[in-house]
């Protein structure tokens, strides 16, 4: 998140060529390819979990006792968890929950942030002042603590986690879009549009907004990574759903805490899954930023 605050202004180039240029650069970047592969892996696991998973995610499929939890084998690739459920199945289904939580919280946070940013950037003046003070206020509480507060207020659960992460991300998007719009507002093409008598709403929605969205897309990709990690963190702290049949990676990690010495791999699999998902979106977002913004190209 802090990296986003050192954002710079995107280039102002003609729409079509910039997109094609960026796409070409993206395809040639090995980092982008690696990120895309991880993202595809994650999304495929999430979408196809019901068909790929060899066992049901919420029912015991083998015998376990706290002292003997079977590790990986031919039947159970990742072994069994502390309740005798198939760990591989649960990691796959966990991808599903992670994707849902990540995407919903991102979309909510983006929508809220863009609305605030649009208000501030389009109207300026006192609206801008009020909105930006609100944003400053929200940014004055460290992200995870803010999320904890919101989730606790909503009484925990999956929707509480999604809303909490969305609220925490709102100020980032608001500030980003406002900065972009302010930069665009002083550009020549806006002056030209104003001069030929285009109406204000049309200038804002038709000209300024589309040209300000590039860094928002980049930030969105990166935010998806932090949203997945933060959701796991909130679940780890017990703020997500109490339903033990829901395989949520952060909760799976927290539940295996007691078996760390007897079955350490139970913590490794959900942990690695979180890293794969988060790393995929981070690599993709970073290379997207590089491809779209010549300032980052080196």
């Amino acid at each position: 998140m802090s990296l986003a605050q050192v954002e710079t202004v995107a280039p102002e180039e003609a729409g079509g060529s910039l997109g094609r240029d960026a796409w070409r650069r993206l395809r040639r970047n090995p980092v982008a390819i690696a990120g895309a592969v991880l993202v595809v892996l994650f999304v495929a696991a999430a979408l196809l979990a019901p068909w790929l998973a060899p066992y049901p995610p919420d029912k015991p499929v083998g015998q376990v006792t706290p002292t003997s939890i079977p590790g990986p084998s031919a039947e159970h690739w990742f072994g069994l968890d502390d309740l005798g459920r198939d760990e591989f199945t649960r990691v796959l289904w966990g991808a599903r929950w992670s994707l849902v939580i990540g995407v919903v919280s991102l979309l909510l946070g983006m929508a809220g942030g863009l609305l605030l940013g649009l208000l501030a950037g389009a109207f300026g003046g006192w609206v801008d002042g009020v909105v930006m003070r609100l944003v400053d206020m929200m940014l004055s509480v460290p992200g995870l603590l803010f999320a904890i507060g919101v989730a606790a207020m909503l009484g925990s659960g999956l929707d509480a986690v999604m809303i909490a992460i969305a609220v925490v991300n709102m100020p980032v998007f608001a500030r980003l879009l406002r900065g972009q719009m302010l930069a665009q507002r002083r550009s020549d093409y806006v002056l030209a549009a104003t001069a030929v008598g285009v109406r204000r709403r049309r200038i804002v929605l038709g000209h300024i907004l589309p040209n300000s969205l590039t860094p928002v897309i980049v930030q969105g990709t990166l935010t998806l990574a932090t949203a997945i990690v933060d959701a796991a963190g909130l679940a780890f702290l017990g703020l997500s759903s109490n339903d033990p049949s829901i395989p949520e990676w952060g909760r799976m990690l927290a539940d295996t805490q007691r078996y760390l010495s007897s079955a350490p791999l139970l913590a490794v699999f959900p942990g690695l899954a979180i890293i794969v998902a988060a790393l995929g979106f981070t690599l993709l977002g970073e290379s997207l930023r590089e491809a779209l913004d010549p300032k980052y190209r080196r």
């Binding site: 990574a225 990690v229 796991a232 963190g233 780890f236 952060g250 990690l253 927290a254 913590a267 942990g271 979180i274 890293i275 988060a278 790393l279 981070t282």
Partner: peptide, 8 residues
């Protein structure tokens, strides 16, 4: 390092 969850 940025993506690794601190609790993991």
């Amino acid at each position: 390092g940025i993506t690794i969850p601190v609790f993991f």
